[in-house]
Design a protein around this nucleic acid. Sequence first.
DNA 1: TGCTTCTTGAAGAATATGTTTCAGAACGTA
DNA 2: TACGTTCTGAAACATATTCTTCAAGAAGCA
Lengths: 290, 290
Amino acid sequence: MNTDDFTVAQRIHDGFDGLTRAERQLANIILENYPVSGLGSITALAENAEVSTPTVARMARKLGFGGFPDMQKQLRHELEATISDPLTKHDKWAADAPDTHILNRFADNVIDNLRNTLKHLNAAEFDKIVALLSDTEHTVAVVGGRLSHTLASYFFTHMQMMRDGVTLIERNSSSWPHYLLSLKEGDVLVMFDMRRYEQDLLRFAEMAKARGVRIILFTDQWGSPAGKAATHQIHSRIEVPSTWDSSVVTMFILEAIISAVQSQSWESSKDRMEELEALFEKTRLFRKFI
Amino acid sequence: MNTDDFTVAQRIHDGFDGLTRAERQLANIILENYPVSGLGSITALAENAEVSTPTVARMARKLGFGGFPDMQKQLRHELEATISDPLTKHDKWAADAPDTHILNRFADNVIDNLRNTLKHLNAAEFDKIVALLSDTEHTVAVVGGRLSHTLASYFFTHMQMMRDGVTLIERNSSSWPHYLLSLKEGDVLVMFDMRRYEQDLLRFAEMAKARGVRIILFTDQWGSPAGKAATHQIHSRIEVPSTWDSSVVTMFILEAIISAVQSQSWESSKDRMEELEALFEKTRLFRKFI
DNA sequence: TGCTTCTTGAAGAATATGTTTCAGAACGTA
DNA sequence: TACGTTCTGAAACATATTCTTCAAGAAGCA
């Protein structure tokens, strides 16, 4: 026990780059439920991580232990130290940072935002939005504001993978009239407008509504003026201890919607995905999973 | 496992009167450093308590377990329950939707991701990254992959508002060599590479490193191969009940970094922000806060 | 004291654990 | 594509653990 000072977690972090695929998989399982997951038998741990026992033994060596039992001993030592230390109250997020560290303050805040957003979110409304977006009878256009364009782009990228007829409207509002032309009655416009609400978006929404376009609006808790033109809207909490507002909760909702659309239209999107995979494979643009 | 509800400690207390001298001696050792002392081998525990191994095995039976390993299993369960954070136990997020609604499942999952990410995030490393990004002596370039380009873009947009010398590298990798040319020793490259790690990003990272560029890598829990070239890296948990991975946690970290950079360099960025405001005002592109 | 019952640990048997070896798979490279 | 390298898990092996047996010793009792 010469290098007792380094925790198993620390050694994993330090040596993470040198770990192989299976070893990383294992490392993650160990860290996931740390340190309990490492206290059982080597067999149990291996099964849990879906790797072989030799992999576990090898990694223990790689991390500088004599073997698996040696590593386990270290885990027990750490646990002992942790448990006897009353300071280890788990009211902190980033364990090694003080409560007042921005990470911890931010985390508290974002969780709060998420909780409040969901509390005031109507699940039925959510489901309707998902249904609208799954309906391939109508096209979907996505538009965002100065800062929220990123969210629009993120949403577009995923939707595009799942279905036909999805357009991302350019950032520059001078081209918007052209896009408006191709939007027909019943089509869907997904709009992002967070505080510092933008005049152009409001006008765009109004004109789209006049054409019979159905608008799904993502806005903040105070609500964009474009809300008047929207068929459905989702209000996210965006305040955080920062000069800027947070997009985390909105992104959360977007991902939930994407996931729901995907599972709703799995039959049709499955083929599409496979085709896409094949295309990527052909162009060899992307490596396979390591 | 029928009487799982009783902890080992409880069973010891309840059955203490029925224990023999050697067994009591053993029981005291178990309770003394509970539950760690019971997590080693039966031999170690026996030696620790100065009794024989059969005594340990017998007592485990006596307390109602199938044997020593069975008792140990229970100890690990208890430990897990103790250690795991009660914050997760938010039965429902979206109040009017069933537990199984995608919103609730997603919320549980994302919180889990956030917790695990932060638990294994090094706050010192975070602070170093913030310092690097606050240093205006060197330029900052931001690059992302197919799906993570959005994150790169989000980060860029905010950084650009706070400081000079920030570049967003185009999506199309054929133009990357040009960007490489303008990166000098000591400059900072912020890279995003999530699973389906991209070959081009790896090569870009290697070449940048060769030029003495310091790389901040945002990757997932498994780690991009570009990690070998990175000066600092942040691993986010990205798995959610969806066909795609989640960017929520990464975005959370980004926002925290942005906020930290902002407060770190407030003196210099304040003027810049005001100038920016004035410009926006002039071009009347954006309405004031309603 | 002598008898019985209970407790205890040494020793060996049964079992599970941990390690090593090795061949095939996956990967990187030319 | 072909080659060399690295990674991985099945299987055999060595080792440690846990359990069982059993006899010696302690404790209680007449």
